[in-house]
């Protein structure tokens, strides 16, 4: 399966990521609610990349379990990384001055959520949404 990589360097890029995710989500036949969920999650995670790492990229990829198509997004950056992942995943915890719902909230919006990070080694977040 081939993916497409988009840069995240400006506020405008976050909008472009949302639009790209929306069009691919519609293409693979996600329901309107599921489209909205994955686009919202993409928006949160893209902003995280921008705010915490100063930029990075996302790979948008169509995946499949045979019958059920899905959409996978891989956000990666070379930022400072996360030292306490459990804490970062807690509702309301923030270091960026936001509401602290970016990570914890977007995890609730997707079917699979995988976070790899260590201090000084950047962050990689992979999320997947399957068609119902």
């Amino acid at each position: 399966m081939s993916g497409q990589e988009l840069p995240i360097a400006t506020n405008g890029d976050v909008v472009l990521v949302r639009q790209k995710v929306r069009s691919v989500a519609a293409e693979i036949g996600l329901s309107l609610v599921d489209q909205t969920k994955i686009v919202t999650a993409a928006s949160e995670l893209a902003r995280n990349v921008l705010v915490h790492a100063g930029g990075g990229r996302v790979e948008v990829e169509k995946v499949s379990t045979g019958l059920r198509p899905g959409l996978r997004l891989v956000f990666s950056d070379e930022g400072p990384g996360i030292s306490d992942i459990a804490q970062a995943m807690t509702d309301g915890f923030t270091t960026g001055g936001g509401l602290g719902l970016g990570l914890s909230g977007s995890r609730r919006l997707v079917d699979e959520f995988d976070l790899v990070s260590a201090p000084g080694e950047g962050t990689r977040i992979m999320v997947t949404k399957w068609a119902r």
Partner: peptide, 14 residues
């Protein structure tokens, strides 16, 4: 507010 947006906001915790 669209239904899909409202449902997503609730899930997001907002």
């Amino acid at each position: 507010m669209r239904p899909a947006v409202a449902i997503t906001l609730v899930e997001l915790g907002l």
